[in-house]
Computed example of a mutant assay.
Amino acid sequence: MNNDNRSGLLRIRLLRGHNLAIRDAPTRSSDPYVVITSANQKFKSRVVKKNCNPEWNEEFTLSVTDVNTPIKLAVFDKDRFTKDDGMGDAEIDIKPYMECLNMGLENLPNGCVVKRVQPSRSNSLADESPCVWNDGKIVQDMTLRLQNVECGEIMIQLQLFNVSIFRGRRTYSLA
């Protein structure tokens, strides 16, 4: 079975930002928020005022039908009277995560690392990103290094749920 035979709902937990760029000179801080887009889906986090190390702890659910469709994450500084300032962007690569799902694993102990994804030029990872078995599901923690900006990282977590596998004319659900 290849990755193109899977679809489902991808939960992205937007956890926090670290060392985000300063865009408000008078307060030496920023008012960051995150926009996540994929295909025709778009989600926006809440604004965290005056904080370059924001804690969002928000969840967004995207419908995934093609692992080759990029999931983009962009950070902005909310401004009251002018256009919001860009604070960097990153792409979320879900292919390694989907490879873990395709292993067909069952009954592993909680906390078992299924795969370790290394940072490379082809992804936005700042650190090693483990795919971990947890309560019958695989979860991937990621620290994304923001691009097109002087500094900043975003921490997220991925989990696919309500997965369907298409075989011929039948659909099997792995909720």
Score class of each variant (00 low, 15 high):
Met98Gly: 03
Val117Phe: 06
Cys52Gly: 08
Asn162Met: 07
Phe76Val: 01
Asp141Tyr: 14
Gly136Ile: 02
Lys115Leu: 12
Lys78Phe: 13
Val64Pro: 03
Ala39Arg: 12
Arg169Asp: 09
Lys78His: 15
Lys137Tyr: 11
Arg145Asp: 02
Ser124Leu: 03
Val67Phe: 13
Arg11His: 07
Lys49Met: 15
Leu14Thr: 04
Asp127His: 11
Gly86Gln: 08
Ala74Gly: 02
Asp77Asn: 06
Asp66Asn: 12
Pro119Val: 02
Arg13Thr: 11
Thr65Glu: 14
Asn68Tyr: 10
Ile154Tyr: 06
Leu101Lys: 01
Lys115His: 10
Asp31Asn: 15
Ala25Met: 09
Leu15Lys: 12
Asn19Ser: 10
Ile71Ala: 03
Leu158Gly: 00
Gly136Pro: 09
Ser7Arg: 13
Asn40Gly: 03
Pro96Arg: 03
Ser164Leu: 12
Lys50Arg: 10
Glu128Ile: 15
Leu108Thr: 02
Asn3Glu: 12
Glu106Gln: 13
Leu146Val: 00
Asp93His: 07
Gln118Thr: 10
Arg16Met: 05
Arg46Phe: 14
Trp133Leu: 10
Cys151Glu: 13
Leu158Arg: 04
Gly8Met: 03
Asp66Pro: 01
Ile92Gly: 00
Ile165Gln: 11
Lys83Trp: 09
Pro130Thr: 04
Val113Ala: 07
Asp89Tyr: 00
Gly168Asn: 05
Val163Pro: 05
Arg13Gln: 08
Pro96Ser: 01
Ser164Ala: 14
Ile165Leu: 15
Val114Glu: 02
Tyr97Leu: 05
Ser122Ile: 06
Arg6Trp: 12
Ser29Asp: 02
Asn110Gln: 07
Ile36Trp: 01
Arg46Asn: 15
Ala126Lys: 07
Leu20Asp: 00
Thr82Val: 11
Asp77Ile: 00
Arg121Ser: 09
Ile22Gln: 13
Met1Asp: 10
Met155Phe: 14
Gly86Ile: 09
Pro119Tyr: 02
Arg80Thr: 10
Arg169Met: 13
Cys52Phe: 09
Arg169Thr: 05
Phe76Leu: 04
Val149Cys: 08
Pro26Gln: 03
Tyr172Phe: 12
Leu174Asp: 14
Gln41Val: 00
Gly152Thr: 04
Ile71Arg: 00
Val117Glu: 09
Pro26Cys: 04
Pro70Gln: 06
Asp141Phe: 14
Gly8Thr: 01
Val139His: 14
Tyr33Gly: 00
Ala175Val: 10
Arg6Glu: 10
Asp66Met: 07
Asn68Val: 15
Cys112Ile: 08
Ser129Met: 05
Asn19Arg: 12
Gly86Lys: 07
Leu125Met: 05
Val113Glu: 15
Gly104Asp: 04
Met155Glu: 13
Ala74Glu: 08
Cys131Thr: 08
Ile165Glu: 13
Glu153Met: 06
Asn51Asp: 09
Ala39Leu: 09
Gly8Phe: 00
Glu128Ala: 13
Pro70Ala: 06
Leu14Ser: 01
Cys112Val: 09
Cys52Thr: 11
Pro119Asp: 04
Met142Ser: 05
Ile165Met: 13
Gly17Tyr: 06
Arg121Lys: 10
Cys52Glu: 11
Asp141Met: 07
Pro130His: 09
Asp24Asn: 11
Asn148Tyr: 07
Gly88Ala: 06
Phe76Asn: 01
Leu174Ile: 06
Arg80Met: 10
